[in-house]
Amino acid sequence: MRYVTVFILSMIFWLLITFKFTIPNIAAGAVASAITAAIFGRYYFYNVYKFLQPRRWLWFVVYLVTFIWACIKANFDVAYRVLHPAMPIKPGIVKVKTTLRSEFARTLLANSITMTPGTITVDIIGDEMYIHWIYIRSEDPALYTRMITGRFEEYIKKFAE
């Protein structure tokens, strides 16, 4: 079942990139997707039935809108810090606990944190993420955990766990 999912995803990718619906093209794509699925199929998607639940797709759309809004805010934040003559920065590395379990969800959370204002993930060890913050606003662990992970953790838990 996992192999079939990888096959379908890589076939969609091939068709989107070439965008030519002739018989030789589709045959070449099928061969390439079969090779990809045979090699990489056992690494991904441990529970493929999650793809078929519409509730998860709804939460994914909510997450995507929040994420794009955070990206745009992050850009103006960086522009303000860079163009200000005195450069208001106060950098440091803080430790944040996460409650997510699966690897895919953790990777997604780390990527979201990297694109949100002022933060970048340095490492994940066990349950703890180490995050470089360009302007540390508070010293209280509970407060900055909520500031950094914020709503992303709830949304990712709803659609990826």
Binding site: K90, P91, I93, V122, E139
Partner: peptide
Amino acid sequence: KRSVKDDY
């Protein structure tokens, strides 16, 4: 030099 914290 301006860094204030290093948990890592």
